[in-house]
Structures are given as structure tokens and as C-alpha cells.
């Protein structure tokens, strides 16, 4: 049995990043008959539009005087739907390798393998990762006693737990883990929360009953040995407090990091991928970069720029996937062929 082939998906295009530009790329590639798989580290499509500002109105999308990040995402998904894209969420692309025949092998941290003729990097500012408190030496505790998410609740059973933050993640996990933890302390910088009011009320009730300890302050330093946390210094308004803790869960939200993209041998310019402005191709033929992650003279980090880049990239990608086919430029308003692909004719 050949292990290599077990989990391998063969496709025309792998799009890394499911933000607005990655989603529109499905559409432009689809009009040219290219099949796409989309991989994103978030648990849903939309990228920054979904994670950072789903409710914020955007005013510079052509044809939409005002549209929210979520509405734009929903529309783009609908627009891409006729082309049957396959989405893979909660995964990070870790490996990208070019084979001798010019095709690529893309691998994810979940162990999937994609064999593809074209790779489109539409990764925006990089992959969303938890904000890490700038506490010296925190790295050696990560994965052992400091965690940025709860994968298995049982890892926190009978532990002295310290949760930091004032959002829904911090509050939800305070409520969920309190019954199984040996002790639980919630640390937040102020006596106000940006979480669901019902969760806040429940948390306050637990604090009033003495079932959890709520401390106003922020993390100062960690004490422990071999990655095993023992206590945490908390800076409070009037000094310092030492809290005994064997597990720490900081919840400060997400930020973007370039991540593995930096290791794929592409020419970079200040952490952005250099491309040409004809095809938006990187220094490796067959790998394209569109949207906020690319760099070229005059680049503007606007969603609309990414849409334009997607359209031109698709023309070039088509020539790689179907080198013998003549590409006829067509309009969706007049081409019956395109309209059939869109399911409207």
C-alpha cells in the first residue's frame, strides 16, 4: 500500500486563504473551467472581513455604497458557488513543494496532501494566530502548561487554572472549566467585559459565591520549571499579586503572522511576496500571490485591487492548466458559455 496516495487530492488550483480575494479568485478561475480547493486557518470563510470586522461597513467596494464584511463574504461565497469550490477550514498550509513536472505538492498541518498545477497565495496579512502575551520565557511553557485554546477539556481537570482576558473566549471557558478545575482565577484589566452579558452575569455570580477568583490586573511574569507552570505574577492597580496556577489560558484574540509562507523560497519584499503586474506571478512560475500579501510598485492594499489581481492571475493560470486551449476573452453579459457555467442560461 502506498501511503502517499491515501490522502492525496488532485486539483487544478489550490488557493491559500479564504478571504475576499481568495473567494473571488474561485469565481475568476471558475469562468475559465479551473477547479479550486481553498485552505484557510480560520473556521469560516471571509478572512479579515470575518475575523476582524464582520459588522463594520466597507464603503469602497465598487457597486456597493455600503456593505459589511460579513455581507461581502456571503455574496462572494454565493458568487463562487456555481464552480463547486471545496473549502478546507481550520488548517494551515505548512508545505509547498514544486515537482520536476512543474506541478506542486501542498501539505497541511492536518496531514492532507494536495497535488495541483497552480498555487494561488491569497493569504492577506498571513495566518491568524493567537496574540501571545509579551512575557519573557512564555515559549517554554506553551503546549505544556500555557494554551491559547482548549482542545480537550480534560487537560484542565483538577488543575489550578488561570484565564486571562475579557472577551467571549475568556468568559465562556471560565464558565465551562470552572466545574472541573481544582481552582479557577480570571484576570482582566478592567471591570468591564466585551462578552455576552449573560456570560458576564454568570461569571460574577460564581465570583460572588467564591467558586472563582476574579482579579483586576494583567500578567507580569511566570514561574515554573521545565515548562510546568507553578505560579503567575499579576500586576494589579496597587501592586502585585502571586497566583498559584498550573495552567494558563491567555485569550487576547488573534493577530496575523506570515507563518510558513516565508519558508517557500519565494522572493519577499518586507514580508510581502514580490509579483509582476501582468500575471501576479511570484518568483516561482505557477505560484501566484494576490491581495494584501503581494507587493509591486504602486500596490494599494484594497479589496478591489485584489479582485483585479485575481482576474489577471486567472488568465495566466488557465494557460498553465490547459496549455493547448485557446483562451477567448468573454463577458458574462453576452457569453452563453459563461452563463451556462454560472447556471443562468
Amino acid at each position: 500500500m502506498n501511503d502517499m496516495s491515501v490522502n492525496e487530492t488532485v486539483t487544478d488550483v489550490v488557493i491559500i486563504g479564504g478571504g475576499p480575494v481568495g473567494l473571488f479568485a474561485i469565481f475568476e478561475l471558475g469562468l475559465l473551467d479551473l477547479k479550486c480547493h481553498v485552505i484557510d486557518i480560520l473556521d469560516r470563510p471571509g478572512g479579515q472581513c470575518a475575523e476582524l470586522y464582520p459588522e463594520k461597513p466597507i464603503y469602497d467596494i465598487p457597486g456597493f455604497p455600503e456593505i459589511s464584511g460579513q455581507e461581502l463574504t456571503d455574496n462572494l461565497i454565493k458568487q463562487a458557488e456555481p464552480f463547486g469550490p471545496v473549502y478546507h477550514f481550520n488548517r494551515m498550509v505548512t508545505g509547498l513543494e514544486k515537482l520536476d513536472d512543474g506541478s506542486f505538492v501542498v501539505t497541511t498541518d492536518e496531514g492532507e496532501v494536495f497535488r495541483t498545477k497552480v498555487v494561488v497565495i491569497a493569504a492577506g496579512g498571513g495566518s491568524f494566530q493567537p496574540k501571545r502575551p509579551p512575557v519573557p520565557g512564555i515559549e517554554e511553557y506553551e503546549g505544556k502548561s500555557v494554551f491559547y485554546s482548549v482542545r480537550r477539556m480534560d487537560d484542565f481537570r483538577d488543575q489550578d487554572l488561570l484565564i486571562v482576558g475579557g472577551g467571549d473566549s475568556a468568559l465562556d471557558w471560565t464558565l465551562n472549566l470552572q466545574p472541573i478545575a481544582k481552582s479557577l482565577t480570571l484576570v482582566h484589566r478592567r471591570d468591564a467585559f466585551r462578552a455576552h452579558p449573560d456570560s458576564v452575569n454568570k461569571m460574577r455570580a460564581l465570583a460572588d459565591e467564591g467558586k472563582i477568583n476574579f482579579v483586576l490586573g494583567q500578567i507580569g511574569s511566570l514561574q515554573g520549571e521545565d515548562g510546568q507552570l507553578q505560579s503567575v505574577h499579576i500586576k494589579t492597580g496597587d501592586g502585585e499579586q502571586i497566583i498559584h496556577a498550573t495552567r494558563l489560558l491567555p485569550f487576547f484574540g488573534l493577530t496575523m503572522k506570515l507563518g510558513p509562507v516565508a519558508d517557500w523560497g519565494l522572493n519577499l519584499h518586507e514580508n510581502l511576496i514580490s509579483v509582476d503586474t501582468e500575471k501576479f506571478e511570484t518568483s516561482v512560475p505557477g505560484i501566484y500571490a494576490i491581495g494584501d500579501i503581494n507587493s509591486y510598485p504602486g500596490k494599494l492594499k484594497l479589496i478591489l485591487s485584489g479582485f483585479h489581481e485575481a482576474a489577471l492571475m486567472a488568465q495566466a493560470a488557465k494557460r498553465i492548466v490547459h496549455p493547448d486551449e485557446k483562451v477567448v476573452f468573454q463577458y458574462t453579459t453576452s457569453s452563453t458559455k459563461l452563463q451556462k457555467k454560472l447556471g443562468v442560461a
Binding site: 496574540k131 502575551p133 509579551p134 482576558g165 472577551g167 491567555p250 487576547f252
Partner: peptide, 11 residues
């Protein structure tokens, strides 16, 4: 802004 400052680890 206060809500967003909650997500600053070195506030």
C-alpha cells in the same frame, strides 16, 4: 477602543 484594548496583552 476600550474593548479593543482588552485584546492588548501589554496594556
Amino acid at each position: 477602543e476600550e474593548d479593543m484594548l482588552d485584546t492588548v496583552p501589554d496594556v
